[in-house]
Amino acid sequence: MKKIFLILGIFLIVFIVWLSIPFNILVIGVDAYANQPTEGSRSDGLIVIRVVPYLAQVKMISIPRDTYAEIPCENYKQDKITHSHHFGGVQCTIDAVENLLDTKINYHVRFRFEDVMNITTLIGGVDVVSNHTFNQDYFDQEVFHFNQGQVYNLQGRMALAYTRHRKSDTAFKRDERQRQVIQGIAKKLVAPSGWKYVPQVYNYSKQHMDIAVNPIKALSVLPAFLMHQSNINQYEITGDGKMINGIWYFMPDEASLEQAREEFKN
């Protein structure tokens, strides 16, 4: 009997240690429409989420789609990082992000931006404070207006419009909007009042999205989202634009890139 308890105790300790190990999730939003295959599309949004379970902490950073980076599946030629998904799908995108941030991506989630529209509808929307004042149309069918500082319940077409706009401000602001909505979805689902939506979102995600995340490991993200906002830290890669052979690229500032590597190293 003592031997059994000893084995169970060792197993429990190993499990707790494993559950406490930090990990990185790459969230890939592609520009394919609902009736199009994801393969061959571009990664319109790239967000790395680092979960530090023993600190109940989450870090999030967006990688601008036009970042000038090496593309591993194209013999490490330098190009916009958004093209990594076009050339080599999820694996090439993971490799490009790992190479850029000098880290390890443990899991990934890939979705179309229409999936954000559908999921926000399923959960009754997410409340977000607009970070900019702008108008954004939905494929010339409907125009949505947002005022900076005002709270909006985003769902459906309105959520898609908010996350995709980038014409009147910057790519950084659009990246922030994407993080706001993703964070809002996660916080709503982990709150007790949002548990009723979990089966619907799970079924939808299983049918329409590419999710490669260990479900047990994913549970370690819950404390950070249930605790105060200060446990969710957001970072940016800063830099400048540059024209190379007539094409505009985002050139990351080396100091900013080094800080990102330090924060998201795995």
Rank of each mutant, 00 (worst) to 15 (best):
T67L: 12
H228I: 04
E236S: 14
V213T: 06
S256K: 12
G241A: 04
L257G: 03
K196L: 11
R112Q: 08
Q141T: 13
P199I: 05
P215M: 05
I232L: 08
K187M: 13
Y162H: 01
V14L: 13
M251T: 04
N135L: 03
D79W: 08
A218Q: 11
I185W: 04
Q148S: 07
M209K: 05
W248S: 12
K167C: 06
V143W: 07
K188G: 01
S43M: 06
Q183V: 10
Q178T: 04
N231G: 13
L100C: 11
S130C: 04
N203Q: 15
Q178A: 04
K59R: 13
N75S: 13
Y204N: 02
R65N: 00
R166Q: 00
W195Q: 10
E142L: 03
T238V: 09
A260M: 08
G29Y: 05
T163R: 09
P53A: 08
F134W: 01
M251C: 11
F172S: 15
N75V: 05
G45H: 09
I21F: 08
A69W: 05
I105S: 11
E263Q: 12
K80T: 09
K173H: 07
Y249A: 03
R179V: 11
P72C: 12
D44G: 04
G241E: 06
I237G: 07
W18I: 13
G194W: 02
V143I: 11
R261K: 15
Y68R: 08
D79N: 10
T163I: 10
F15H: 05
N214E: 06
G125M: 03
Q259D: 10
S62A: 09
I94Y: 00
R157G: 12
G45R: 10
G9L: 10
